[in-house]
């Protein structure tokens, strides 16, 4: 398959272990360009590990990862990544605009000093405008609320002009209203980007994504019509937001009494 028609993400027979603990067992997944896919599963089910493999931060012990038909490291600059937790110290002396500008940093040594910083600033402001957070540009990153920080991290990912957006629990530490706003924004971005979002909240993301991949060491995919809220309620009970379920068939969730 040529690189121009390759799927955004293709995983074949992917296995990964931490020591003797098998975290991912023979994972096959294909995400076409333009899809909006949710990845759900219990804690320690392998979601973050799978993302790291797709991002090229880990190497699989078996199987193959291809992003736009290339090994992840080679496709890294076509991916925008929003981590679950910011990896930086909140007291780091840096403005929001500078953080977002880092998303557009050149690969390799790229020794262009960009003395005025004009190009980077323009990219940062455009990305902040897209996530409706331009008013935060001059703020120090340590003064942001959880929801504002998520928007800024999303803007940083967008500043690199990605074709694929990967988000790891982007709404884990924010309230319901901010969660809705972020997902509305993602739905708009999906018009031009392929999106893979990890979430613990299958009921919530089912309203946005077109396909759900359920991961608990092994992986099964479902259309969102199969995980409507009444089925989730039957399966997990009212108010349960963490998903931990069994797969008895390869193609759909099984409700009690089936």
């Amino acid at each position: 398959m040529s690189e121009t028609e390759a799927p955004a993400i293709a995983l074949r027979g992917l296995c990964f272990s931490y020591g003797d603990r098998l975290v991912l067992d023979t994972i096959d997944l294909e995400i076409a360009r333009g899809e909006f896919v949710g990845l759900v599963g219990p804690n320690a089910g392998g979601k973050s590990t799978l993302l790291k493999l797709i991002l090229g931060l880990l190497e699989p012990q078996a199987g193959e990862v291809r992003v736009f038909g290339e090994p992840p490291r080679q496709a890294a600059r076509r991916i925008g990544y929003v981590p679950q937790f910011p990896a930086f110290a909140r007291d780091f002396p840096i403005s929001v605009e500078q953080v977002v500008a880092m998303g557009a940093i050149g690969a390799g040594f790229d020794p262009r000093p960009d003395w005025s910083g004009r190009a980077a600033r323009a990219a940062a402001r455009a990305a902040l405008a897209e996530v409706e957070a331009l008013e935060l540009a001059a703020r120090r990153v340590g003064t942001l609320s959880g929801g504002q920080l998520q928007r800024v991290l999303l803007a940083r990912a967008l500043a690199g002009a990605p074709e694929l957006l990967i988000l790891d629990e982007p709404t884990a530490s924010i309230d319901q209203r901010a969660e809705n706003e972020i997902f509305d924004l993602l739905a708009r971005l999906n018009a031009r980007l392929t999106i893979l979002v990890v979430s613990h909240d299958i009921a919530f993301i089912s309203g946005y994504v077109r396909r759900v991949a359920c991961l608990n060491r092994t992986l099964r995919c479902h259309g969102t019509e199969l995980v409507a809220s009444d089925i989730v309620r039957q399966l997990y009970g009212e108010g349960v937001r963490r998903v931990d379920h069994q797969h008895n068939t390869p193609t759909r969730l099984q409700a009690p009494g089936d």
């Binding site: 981590p83 880092m102 040594f109």
Partner: peptide
């Protein structure tokens, strides 16, 4: 620092993200 200020800033700010952007 004149040549690589942005790279140093990226590496000390967020190593993982800098690595994903292809910074050595």
């Amino acid at each position: 620092f004149a040549l690589f200020y942005r790279q140093f800033l990226a590496v000390i700010f967020d190593e993982e993200f800098a690595r994903l952007r292809g910074v050595p």
